[in-house]
Design a binder for these strands. Structure first.
Lengths: 200, 200
DNA sequence: GTCTATAGAAAGATAGAC
DNA sequence: GTCTATCTTTCTATAGAC
């Protein structure tokens, strides 16, 4: 008779470690959290983390890859929206709300930007993930640069609203922010021409 | 007869430590660099760092305050420029060039964003320094929010061009980037109205 | 004013029992 | 499959000599 497979479930343990690591890395960055702490958050010991993932670095890589897989701003819904810039502005404000967690991938990378290993990993993931998705949706010249600027805007808002919690942005009215961001994003997506929609 | 005051110059040693720390923190963030390394960069031992600054944390605070004092984007010249948005766009591209160091204050804060102490310090410095300077130059409603969004754009471009070195932005043509950023910044500074310059 | 030497804590990773 | 216990390294900070 083997174990009841409740306290000894490899898949569940692995998932618990991943979830705990994602939360911890997003909160404190790669250097700011120890393997012991991640393990405690998953209800296991530090040794199991290394047993399942080999090292802290490999664990970080696996978590980072997971976060890129589920995009929240450049989601399929938003990419197919009729008014693309408006959808982006709305999502951007929503997911960078202080205390919100859907954009924990960016949060994790920002807070880990002091670690060369984390940076190198993040560069490849963002380029092949988010940037490629956005470039495919853009028309006109300099698509790669414009996509990069949009990603910079996402990272910057994340940094100022959630990481640094600059009061003017962190405590701002969401509708006001979206209203200010929408024309910016529209220029970036559709080009700097005069808005073609209003009758005049 | 006292010492020739060459190998034993308190002010020079202090300045050397500050310079070394600024360089090191900007490169690797608060957690990514040790006191030993900073000391070695200044040609002294780790002990002197703590003797002069009390702790690594206080040293970081002093360096951070220094970086805010010399603003490079929101400089007096740019704040007085005839075409303010264009001046901002040009400066923004220039100081976020990969390898450039003038914006090392932002770089330092970004790379240290995993450390709660560094974040708290940076929030106050940026609000009382950069944001206050920009708000004083803005007209119209929501000045604080618009200033915050501009700072987010600065932080995001810094993050993507210098910290993460995303190829589409890091290797982009400076004039192209400035040309893409200028209309964005113009909307942010002057409002979303139709550009008044073209004859029709 | 600056050094060598070290204390004391915490990190990542591993050995071996059950 | 999971644990306790430990190895090794690295860190900040301090004590005391010169």
């Amino acid at each position: 008779m083997t174990q009841p497979a409740r306290r000894r479930d490899a898949a569940a343990t692995r998932a618990a470690i991943l979830a705990s690591a994602r939360k911890a890395f997003a909160r404190a960055g790669y250097d700011g959290v120890g393997v012991r702490e991640i393990a405690a958050g998953a209800g296991v010991t530090a040794m199991l983390v290394n047993r399942y993932f080999g090292s802290k670095e490999q664990l970080f890589a696996e978590v980072a890859a997971d976060t890129v897989r589920d995009a929240v701003i450049l989601s399929p819904e938003n990419l197919a929206a009729a008014d693309f810039p408006a959808a982006l502005a709305r999502s951007l404000v929503e997911v960078t709300t202080p205390g919100a967690t859907p954009l924990d991938g960016f949060q994790m990378m920002l807070r880990s930007s002091g670690s060369p290993k984390a940076v190198e990993l993040g560069r490849d993931l963002i380029r092949q993930g988010h940037q490629a998705a956005l470039v495919g949706r853009l028309e006109g010249p300099h698509a790669a640069e414009r996509a990069g600027i949009f990603l910079a805007l996402v990272a910057g808002l994340q940094a100022m609203r959630q990481t640094l919690e600059l009061p003017s942005l962190a405590e701002a009215d969401p509708d006001t922010l979206a209203g200010l961001l929408e024309p910016l994003i529209r220029v970036l997506i559709d080009g700097p021409a005069c808005p073609p929609s209003p009758p005049r």
